[in-house]
Amino acid sequence: MKWKISEHQPGRRRFMRLLGRAIVYAGAALVSVGLMGRRGLAAAIPALSTTGYDWTKHRWGFGVDATRCIGCLRCVEACKTENGVARDAHHFRTWVERYVYLKGEKKPRVDSQQDPGNITASGSEKEYRFDNRYQDAKIEKAFFVPKLCNQCEHPPCVQVCPVGATFRTPDGVVLIDHNYCIGCQYCVQACPYGVRLFNHEHGVTDKCTWCYHRITRGLKPACVEVCPTNARIFGDQNDPESPISKFIRENRTRVLKPEMGTSPNVFYVGLDKEVM
């Protein structure tokens, strides 16, 4: 109705109104073209384009079969070497926990490679092995659980970073820009899984990247590469024939702390409810 009336408006007013609309539409068009341009850029990381890696085509996923883990800690060793993590008992990008239920006890006893007893068994903080403290104990049940970054769909650590130093890539890995990180450690506190660590030597936060420099070259993460029992599974969730897709399809998997709403991408088999 209004439009009809406007046809009877004097020419100048009508012209001004049309001009106004034209500006709004043109602006919107420009903005959307600009956004599309950005999305187009995202198809390839400039420095990776030579290797033919396209990060929009992958969706990485990780599986852990706790029923196969033997607690040899070769994954921890490989991770430290591959990623230059400090060789001591306080810095780990990945680790293994041991859960032991003794007969008559309701709660499990939990230890990992940084436990003093295990350091004594390995001989130094630079080597990793589980001691055999339960060999003579009466055991109800015992198992090992490897832990690492869950590379959440909704990472709380990224949300709290005040300087844009941590982010999630389109292929599903949460990374840290060590040049931008100011070492405030908000992210360390925000992570519900405790996977972030602080690199005291360089004053920056560090975390598991699923060996981003390896997977973008078509290699497996170092921990998966050295695992002698295939307790660690890695692959592209976009490929239905990848090890991880098969693992998720053929097993009933669960993620850690689903109630946090983080949508983790590490899928576990063989955990008890006590494992958080």
């Binding site: 990381i45 420095a47 941590t166 420099h213």
Partner: peptide, 18 residues
């Protein structure tokens, strides 16, 4: 996105050790 795009390539540039 809200991060330095070059960081991705820098992280990916590290040579595999294994």
């Amino acid at each position: 996105g809200h991060y330095r795009a070059d960081a991705v390539a820098e992280i990916a540039a590290a040579a595999p050790i294994y």
